[in-house]
Simulated scan of single mutants.
Amino acid sequence: MSKSGSAAPPLPVPTPPSPSLAVPKKKPYPFWLGGVAATIAASITHPLDLTKVRLQASGDKRMIASLKKTVSTAGVRGLFDGISGTWMRQMSYSMCRFWAYEESKKFLGANTKDAPAWKLGLAGSMAGGIAGFVGNPGEIVMVRLQGDFAKPPEKRFNYKHCFDALFRMVREEGPSSLARGVGPNVFRAILMNASQLASYDFFKAELLKTSYFEDNIACHFTASFAAGTVATTVCSPADVLKSRIMNASGPGSSSTIGAIRTAIANEGPTFMFKGWVPAWMRLQPTTILIFLTLEQLKNGVDLMRGKGWDYL
């Protein structure tokens, strides 16, 4: 009561914040980031991938000897023969798989921190199926450009660059040539993306739940290291079977079931993981570089958006 006997005015009741003032939802990252990250990683590891292709296509037996042979015959620049095919492959296949993976996670409701592993795996499988189909021409171009100099001169394609390879394939072999090997390529892409992309997200989320990791390069390295190991293990049976069927001869030797039965009878189930160590040594650095680069590109986008670059 005031001195005049009248009641004091009531205190103002705080009003809840308007929905319009709520924290805005974070803008998605550009769809092409994954393709750029994979292109950077593949450019760094290109000499190793090139050497692997040449070991398979030539009589060379050792990686170091093959590297020295390339440098002695074509110089250091020779280690990057066919790099345009690698770029085409990454900017088609990899860009598509990262984009499709994010869209698949949204579709499945798996774009949260606590998304179950099976949903992440399914999203990766969907992304792999799409990207394996879209990126098949780039895959063919990359393999042909990398393996060309390992062939006798009379059997070389002598493509100038990736676009020359693409146009000549269509002109000389028909449009259907762009779909060669699309079945095995899609199957392997499904396995690779279900294991690599999904396991990276899973391991990263699990690491961030502990008190030992923050969202930094140490966490990204550890998660990508684990993802590379999982991807190598999951893809190993498909790689072994593909190699055996392609190298087999004789009637019925191209049968997948027949190849499995023969191998199990002669070597046991562990045959599916033969060559795991060299496969791991090849895939592991690529996986680590891709995810470390992708995370740094995302940090760069966040930094530029903070400076007003809203179009990113």
Rank of each mutant, 00 (worst) to 15 (best):
residue 244 R to A: 10
residue 211 S to Q: 10
residue 175 P to N: 04
residue 236 S to G: 11
residue 242 K to Y: 10
residue 225 F to R: 00
residue 188 R to H: 11
residue 193 N to S: 11
residue 172 E to T: 07
residue 210 T to S: 14
residue 211 S to Y: 12
residue 228 G to F: 08
residue 248 A to F: 00
residue 232 T to A: 13
residue 236 S to I: 04
residue 249 S to Y: 01
residue 236 S to E: 15
residue 199 S to Y: 08
residue 208 L to K: 06
residue 200 Y to A: 09
residue 213 F to H: 05
residue 239 D to G: 03
residue 235 C to M: 14
residue 172 E to N: 14
residue 170 V to K: 04
residue 236 S to W: 03
residue 192 M to D: 07
residue 179 A to M: 10
residue 202 F to T: 13
residue 197 L to C: 10
residue 238 A to F: 02
residue 195 S to H: 06
residue 230 V to R: 05
residue 216 N to M: 10
residue 222 T to C: 11
residue 179 A to S: 15
residue 181 G to S: 04
residue 237 P to K: 02
residue 233 T to E: 00
residue 210 T to A: 07
residue 246 M to K: 15
residue 207 L to A: 13
residue 171 R to F: 10
residue 230 V to F: 12
residue 251 P to V: 13
residue 248 A to N: 05
residue 204 K to I: 03
residue 244 R to G: 14
residue 251 P to D: 13
residue 210 T to H: 13
residue 174 G to H: 07
residue 183 G to R: 12
residue 238 A to T: 03
residue 212 Y to H: 10
residue 200 Y to C: 05
residue 171 R to N: 15
residue 203 F to C: 07
residue 227 A to P: 11
residue 178 L to K: 01
residue 204 K to C: 09
residue 190 I to Y: 02
residue 186 V to R: 01
residue 249 S to K: 10
residue 205 A to G: 11
residue 199 S to D: 03
residue 221 F to I: 15
residue 181 G to A: 03
residue 198 A to Q: 07
residue 176 S to T: 02
residue 179 A to P: 09
residue 200 Y to S: 04
residue 217 I to L: 12
residue 231 A to M: 14
residue 231 A to T: 05
residue 224 S to K: 02
residue 238 A to I: 02
residue 251 P to K: 00
residue 230 V to E: 01
residue 205 A to N: 08
residue 242 K to A: 14
residue 214 E to A: 08
residue 201 D to S: 11
residue 214 E to W: 12
residue 240 V to N: 13
residue 170 V to M: 08
residue 206 E to G: 14
residue 224 S to Y: 04
residue 173 E to G: 07
residue 227 A to E: 09
residue 191 L to Y: 01
residue 183 G to Y: 05
residue 239 D to S: 08
residue 200 Y to L: 12
residue 231 A to K: 03
residue 196 Q to I: 11
residue 245 I to D: 13
residue 197 L to S: 01
residue 224 S to H: 02
residue 186 V to D: 00
residue 201 D to A: 09
residue 232 T to W: 01
residue 223 A to R: 01
residue 177 S to V: 12
residue 193 N to K: 06
residue 236 S to F: 02
residue 227 A to K: 02
residue 199 S to M: 07
residue 177 S to P: 11
residue 188 R to L: 11
residue 217 I to P: 00
residue 177 S to Q: 11
residue 186 V to S: 06
residue 235 C to D: 02
residue 193 N to I: 00
residue 190 I to C: 02
residue 234 V to C: 04
residue 177 S to T: 13
residue 189 A to Y: 00
residue 218 A to W: 09
residue 213 F to A: 04
residue 188 R to C: 07
residue 181 G to W: 00
residue 237 P to N: 05
residue 241 L to I: 13
residue 203 F to I: 09
residue 181 G to H: 00
residue 177 S to N: 12
residue 236 S to A: 14
residue 212 Y to K: 14
residue 242 K to W: 07
residue 244 R to L: 10
residue 247 N to P: 04
residue 238 A to N: 04
residue 200 Y to I: 09
residue 191 L to N: 09
residue 245 I to L: 09
residue 242 K to E: 02
residue 183 G to P: 01
residue 173 E to N: 14
residue 211 S to R: 11
